[in-house]
């Protein structure tokens, strides 16, 4: 493997006395699509949130293209990173949320040009051209002037994907992006993610409950349980022949449910 895109090295996260992630080691290659699955409370969303700097970490280092995310090198030593450093590294990462989190006072297009203009300094014309390409890709170009509340959940989520992509991240994080959707709207969002996987040489890390999608889409599946990776591997092997007792239990329960 070439230089990893993202690596978690002995990363620990605690909430009070509860250890959510316990010495996590996880390395993700450039362009790799990784699905993170597991029961709720297993720490899988925390992995994404730490990488997006929405959570602090209590131990270990996260690296993005070799560069530490929450620390920086100064005089040969690792010191806690300042805002400028965090923003520089964070620019490589984009995230899509379970609850969309579109800006409700902005249209679909405005949602997609805000950060490119304010953060990347793009002109309005350039930002709009970029946004329209992406809205077109997610099938929302004809809804550019709609406000989020005028869109369905699936449409909102597709705009949210376009908004994140407009920042040209190298890593995209998908945090249970279909969990808040009505069942009939799940497909259109997964379709966009599929397209993204094919069209872009993009590293993708997704927490999902869509086992079928994980099996078909991911290069690798990581099964989390109690803050640790219990089992990881190629999806075909993992889903047909899980090795770990907990994975087997989890898959059995999920399959029975639906």
């Amino acid at each position: 493997m070439t230089e990893p895109m993202v690596s978690f090295e002995n990363v620990t996260k605690r909430y009070g006395t509860l250890t959510v992630l316990d010495n996590l080691n996880l390395t993700i290659g450039r362009g790799e699509k990784v699905a993170i699955i597991g029961p709720s409370g297993s720490g899988k969303t925390t992995v994404l949130r730490m990488l997006m700097t929405l959570e602090t970490i209590d131990g270990g280092v996260i690296r993005v293209e070799g560069e530490p995310l929450t620390h920086m090198e100064r005089g040969g030593k690792l010191v806690p990173a300042d805002q400028a450093h965090i923003r520089k590294v964070r620019a490589k990462i984009g995230m899509v949320f379970q609850s969309f989190n579109l800006f409700p006072h902005m249209t679909a297009l405005q949602n997609c040009i805000e950060a490119p203009m304010k953060v990347l300094g793009l002109s309005r014309e350039k930002a709009e051209a970029r946004a329209m390409d992406l809205l077109d890709m997610v099938g929302m170009a004809n809804r550019r002037d709609y406000y989020p509340s005028q869109l369905s959940g699936g449409q909102q989520q597709r705009v949210a994907i376009a908004r994140a992509l407009a920042m040209r991240p190298k890593v995209m994080l998908f945090d249970e992006v279909t969990s808040a959707l009505d069942p009939e709207l799940v497909g259109e969002v997964l379709q966009v993610i599929r397209k993204l996987g094919a069209e872009h040489d993009l590293t993708m890390l997704m927490v999902t409950h869509q086992m079928g999608f994980a099996k078909e889409f991911a290069d690798r599946v990581c099964f989390f349980h109690s803050g640790r990776i219990c089992e990881e591997g190629e999806p075909q092997a993992f889903f047909t022949n899980p090795q770990n007792e907990r994975s087997r239990q989890f898959l059995r329960a999920v399959l029975e449910a639906g």
Partner: peptide, 23 residues
């Protein structure tokens, strides 16, 4: 204002003052 609005702003790398003013 839901916390998700701040989080989306962080994810888009918007600065804190820009987030306050625009979002």
């Amino acid at each position: 204002v839901p916390r998700g609005q701040w989080e989306a702003s962080v994810a888009l790398n918007l600065g804190r003052w820009t987030t306050l003013r625009d979002i």
